[in-house]
Amino acid sequence: MNVSMTASAMAKQYIYNWNMKLNKNNSLFTNGSTPLSGHINPYEDPWMDITNRSSSEWQRMIPVDEDVANQVRNMVKEDFVKRYGMTDGSPEHIDDRANLIKNYTKTLPGEQRLAATWTLGQVVSEEAARLKSIILKHDPSWTYGKPFDTSILDEDPSNHLDIYV
């Protein structure tokens, strides 16, 4: 192995060799088949790979940081107040919510990352559903993007999932 290699290059080379060994019989692979169990994508966090995972394995709720969950809720509420339920599609802000979640899950042990990502996704759904139900009480024909009086969103007290660390 080249001594001038960086640690990350060495790790990638090791995974490359590992995959080569594993894929020795890759002529047996059919088009569109999932990689063999044990195959590792050297370019990604293996804990965030759902290729060989069943949904029940990672689509589960776990306790998450309350502050992060509240920030996610505030972002969803902002979508409703500023854009009638639509997200901000501008290049400057399009990844704000995903980056908040990603930066938080990176701080967690590997085995919790997918479940924490899923949990925060459920926080988004729960908050959007809560706000939508308030709007529908006033306008049963409301759909995403249709203007409404945003002051009605302050009528109902919040009633959140209890999912905090």
Partner: peptide
Amino acid sequence: PDGITRETYV
């Protein structure tokens, strides 16, 4: 966007 990956063999 939040970093979840899936791959397939082509």
